[in-house]
């Protein structure tokens, strides 16, 4: 299903396909008409995707077919062995984690997982973890430290789950602990924002020495809809809230919150997932390489400096 602003493009593409089929079936020459439409398509794509609003990027970040954590694990990494459970209460399917190999090297990976189908989405709670998910992630950080493997997190969540059971089992506490635990890693830590970076539920696994973001992903203190509901008292103002929140990859790079933007193929990663994942592999390799040379103490200092500088204040 196409996003609303993709529809004119989809329609034009369908039209061109039809004309081609018709020309072939009937043996008539429609190449002029087709060329005309192809030029129009090119212009339309350029126009649409070079002027995306922040709200359109939020929609791209949520587009069905966009690479998820498991897609990354299957395509960017190899030898993925999933590890389950928090050793206390349950296994949370909203976070997947385990051992894998990246360019021949053992690494530990944890990431939010949305469903690739509606049924799977319900099973995975739309990528909104309970405390158990964060406890599982912290277990992975322990594992990375124990074996000296790099820790790589993949972020794609609307937020940590706001529910009774989550509150009862200490949602706020585990998020705080996970931030603290990741800050204490003595190994290289990379965080990649794949799609949605929804607030504390994203940051809990976002304390990397370097933070990467896909071109059409977003990262914010609150989702545009919730922000609109509170500040504008109207969730329908989400587009306006998205503009105000400055939550796109480019905004975040300017604010110093992310270190690298991973380019996506035109039209978004959901249209050409393999091309997007190839770019992601190159970006991870480039960011990981220099970190591998740092000592545990240097990595700790580097991470503290990175986050200590965050924010904008006026000094008197």
């Amino acid at each position: 299903m196409a996003l609303e602003f993709e529809q004119p493009i989809d329609e034009l593409e369908a039209r061109i396909r039809e004309l081609r089929e018709y020309a072939e079936e009937q043996g008539v020459d429609l190449s002029d008409e087709i060329e005309l439409l192809e030029n129009k398509l090119e212009r339309l794509q350029k126009e649409t995707f070079s002027n995306l609003s922040r709200w359109q990027r939020v929609q791209l970040a949520r587009a069905p077919g966009r690479p998820t954590t498991l897609d990354v694990l299957e395509n960017v990494f190899s030898d993925f062995v999933e590890l389950h459970g928090d050793r206390a209460v349950a296994d949370d399917p909203a976070i997947v984690a385990g051992l894998a190999r990246f360019e021949g090297r053992s690494v530990v990976v944890a990431g939010h997982q949305k469903g690739r189908t509606t049924k799977e989405n319900i099973h995975r709670n739309f990528g909104m973890p309970h405390p158990e998910g964060y406890r599982k992630a912290m277990r992975m950080m322990d594992l990375a430290d124990r074996f000296g493997f790099p820790f790589i997190s993949l972020i794609d969540t609307p937020g940590a789950y706001p529910g009774i059971s989550a509150e009862e089992r200490g949602q706020a506490w585990v998020i705080a602990q996970s931030i603290q635990r990741m800050g204490r890693l003595r190994v290289p830590a990379l965080a990649v924002i794949l799609g949605e970076g929804g607030s504390g539920g994203a940051l809990a696994i976002g304390v990397g020495n370097r933070v990467l973001i896909m071109e059409n992903a977003w990262y914010s203190v609150i989702s545009p809809e919730s922000c609109a509901a509170i500040l504008w008292r109207d969730a329908a103002q989400a587009a306006e809230a998205a503009e105000a929140l400055k939550l796109t990859a480019r905004d975040l790079k300017e604010l110093g919150v992310v270190d690298r933007i991973v380019p996506e193929p035109r039209g978004g990663a959901h249209r050409q997932p393999q091309a997007a994942l190839a770019e992601l592999r190159r970006a991870i390799a480039a960011e990981l390489e220099p970190l591998l040379k740092l000592s545990p103490e240097e990595l700790l200092r580097d991470r503290y400096r990175r986050f200590r500088e965050m924010g904008a204040v006026a000094q008197s």
Partner: peptide, 13 residues
């Protein structure tokens, strides 16, 4: 926005 979010990491660390 995200700068407030980053204060969570900063204060914790």
């Amino acid at each position: 926005s995200v700068l407030s979010l980053m204060q969570m990491a900063k204060t914790t660390m």
